[in-house]
């Protein structure tokens, strides 16, 4: 398989993780060992085996569509890294290009 530092950098970008080149180079061989080891799942996962996606058979749980009080705005915003005019403040989301 041989995962390269460039592969790690590409995956890190997908995961929104800003890693240094040194981190990518260090992680590549470690992750390669892990991925080579976990690839063993392919040995027994034949085409006729169904997928198990959850520990329980899942069912949709519905409740009555009634208005209920939610958390007060100031309580929710109290843990935010930045707040402006009673809202979460975010950095710009669109770039110029």
């Amino acid at each position: 398989m041989a995962l390269s530092a460039e592969d790690v950098a590409r995956l890190a970008a997908l995961a929104r993780l800003d890693l240094t080149n040194a981190e990518c180079a260090e992680l590549a061989p470690e992750l390669d060992v892990i991925l080579t080891s976990v690839a063993a799942v392919g040995e027994v996962a034949g085409p006729d085996v169904p997928l198990m996606t959850h520990a329980l058979p899942l069912v949709n749980v519905m409740r009555d569509d009634e208005v209920r009080p939610s958390l007060p705005r100031e309580v929710v915003l109290a843990g935010a890294p930045d707040v402006e005019e009673g809202r979460f403040r975010v950095p710009q989301i669109l770039s110029e290009d």
Binding site: L11, L14, L17, L31, V38, A45, V49, P50, L51
Partner: peptide, 25 residues
């Protein structure tokens, strides 16, 4: 990164799908 890899297009069936089959077994 492992999770992102296992779910990424082209590897999803080989890794995540196979793991869910092992879960059944």
């Amino acid at each position: 990164i492992i999770g992102t890899y296992a779910l990424s297009s082209g590897y999803h069936d080989q890794f995540y799908g196979s793991a869910q089959k092992v879960r059944t077994l």
